[in-house]
């Protein structure tokens, strides 16, 4: 049998004067006047992930605008869910870095599990998993991304370090809604880590 701990005079005095309750109240009132940690996501702020983040695919180009992809189809082979389709074609007009370029390069983001094997397989670092994470769409067909879309430059450039909350703008257009980040306006949201 567990022996009941004897209460000293000090413990009883503590109980009578509500010391613990007052301590609790002082903690909560401190938090009541402190800053909040909420990221006001669609309206004012947005989280930019770290560089290691694996979001939606993107196809890179060289600095002079040539497609890096040589349609070798290694990403198709590496993909565990078979969500990438590549159809190669011959094109020597200088569109790509080689004569072999993709006619079709599409990825089905519904089936993709964002493992990043396609990045690893790619010999020319053409395919990268970017930092776009707002992938919601209205139909399954919308989730299939074609080459034209993937070739567009990313919203957050590859060199940007990330891991910060930046100010953003909520935009409502005919094409849909989007949250446009302003990556050069970071907001300090890490104050609570130092508390």
């Amino acid at each position: 049998m567990k022996e009941k701990k004897k209460e000293g005079v000090l413990d009883i005095l503590k109980k009578v004067l509500f010391v613990d309750i007052l301590k609790g109240l002082s903690v909560t009132v401190k938090y009541n006047v402190s800053r909040s940690v909420t990221i006001r996501y669609p309206d004012e702020e947005k989280w930019i992930p770290y560089q290691r983040f694996r979001g939606a695919h993107t196809l890179n180009k060289t600095e002079d605008g040539k497609e890096l992809c040589v349609a070798c189809e290694l990403c198709v082979k590496a993909c565990p869910t078979k969500c990438i389709t590549v159809v190669p074609e011959e094109d020597d007009t200088g569109r790509g870095i080689a004569d072999r370029v993709p006619k079709v390069w599409k990825v089905d983001l519904v089936r993709c599990l964002f493992c990043g094997y396609c990045e690893d397989a790619c010999p020319t670092t053409a395919v990268r998993l970017g930092r776009e994470y707002e992938l919601a769409c209205f139909s399954r067909d919308d989730a299939v991304r074609e080459k034209e879309r993937l070739l567009k430059p990313q919203e957050v450039p590859e060199g940007f370090e990330g891991g910060v909350v930046v100010s953003a703008k909520f935009e409502r257009t005919k094409e849909g809604i989007r949250v446009k980040p302003d990556i050069w306006k970071p907001k300090d949201k890490n104050w609570w880590k130092k508390v």
Binding site: T28, V29, Y31, N32, V33, S34, R35, S36, V37, T38, R40, D43, W192
Partner: peptide, 14 residues
């Protein structure tokens, strides 16, 4: 609002 701020949130905001 008080609930939110005590729990370091913002409470209703939109």
């Amino acid at each position: 609002k008080i609930a939110g701020h005590i729990q370091v949130r913002l409470g209703p905001f939109r």
